[in-house]
Design a binder for these strands. Structure first.
Lengths: 154, 154
DNA sequence: TATTGTTATACTCTATAACTATA
DNA sequence: TATAGTTATAGAGTATAACAATA
């Protein structure tokens, strides 16, 4: 007499689960590092985009970052309160706004970038050069195929 | 006259950033799928652990899942309200409790596991077999080296 | 009518710590 | 005193939708 054993996959059978484990750990480590400078991970990404695309509209930034306009609005409020960005009215469209870095904000970006470099090195430095290259390639493949082009991929 | 150009790394130069992008997208997709059954991603993991380790204490579960006792307590409240788990007092230690699946909860796990399988296939099926194997291996390496043994890795 | 940006609401997840009851 | 579990608080992130002003 056979028992039909329903095969129930383990959590760790799923690549998505493994990735969430690693990703959350890396993000939390990074969050601790940037917290020392007084910003969050989302704020760092916001500032980094403005570093290249200064004078961007909130809606455009939302598209670029894969966030809603409401979320961008709240983030902008916080960064404004911290004196890291400026919010001004568009000259051409009286509904629209323009977001830009303050001098303080702009000066902070290289420091934050360095922390991001460090964090990446600490975590992924554990891998061989080949493994690391493979991982980057695979992640970029997934991002492309799934059109997760939150921030233009170079 | 040289300008010293401070090199500021891009967001996409960081493996951690790429991974967060992919991981968040995968998790959100999965969250939508399991929401149809009425649970969250964290609740799925909770139920899946109980499926193998029925009758576990909250503190032990917190250790196993890499969460605080407070977080486990809130999760347990929700799962209790949904009728998916049972909470009883330990026989041996009157401070301690025992968490176990209800019949309804146990019956739900294979369905959830199937959704997790599907979600994984949809996302990582885009990769070649070799790429997928490499990704799993690399993630497991990172989890081991960083001791992210939230749930025992097989 | 559609779009820009803000605001309100709500929910998940996380972290810290105060609290009780028991050991 | 240490441990088991609960609860309160707070902040980050996410999502939806109502709203006022402008196009």
């Amino acid at each position: 007499m056979d028992h039909f054993m329903p095969s129930v996959s383990n959590l760790t059978d799923h690549t998505g689960y493994l990735m969430r484990l690693v990703s959350n750990a890396v993000s939390q480590d990074f969050a601790c590092k940037v917290a020392a400078i007084g910003v969050t991970v989302a704020e760092w990404a916001f500032l980094r985009v403005l570093f290249d695309t200064d004078g961007i509209a909130p809606t455009a930034l939302a598209d670029k970052m894969g966030m809603t306009r409401g979320a961008i609005s709240k983030l902008a409020d916080r960064l404004l309160a911290k004196g890291l960005i400026r919010r001004s009215d568009s000259q051409t469209d009286r509904r629209a706004q323009v977001l830009a870095l303050t001098t303080q904000g702009r000066n902070m970006v290289p420091d934050l970038a360095r922390l991001a470099d460090e964090n990446d090195a600490e975590t992924f430095g554990l891998l061989t050069t080949a493994e690391r290259a493979a991982l980057d390639q695979i992640l970029k493949t997934l991002i492309e195929r799934r059109s997760l082009t939150t921030t233009a991929l170079d």
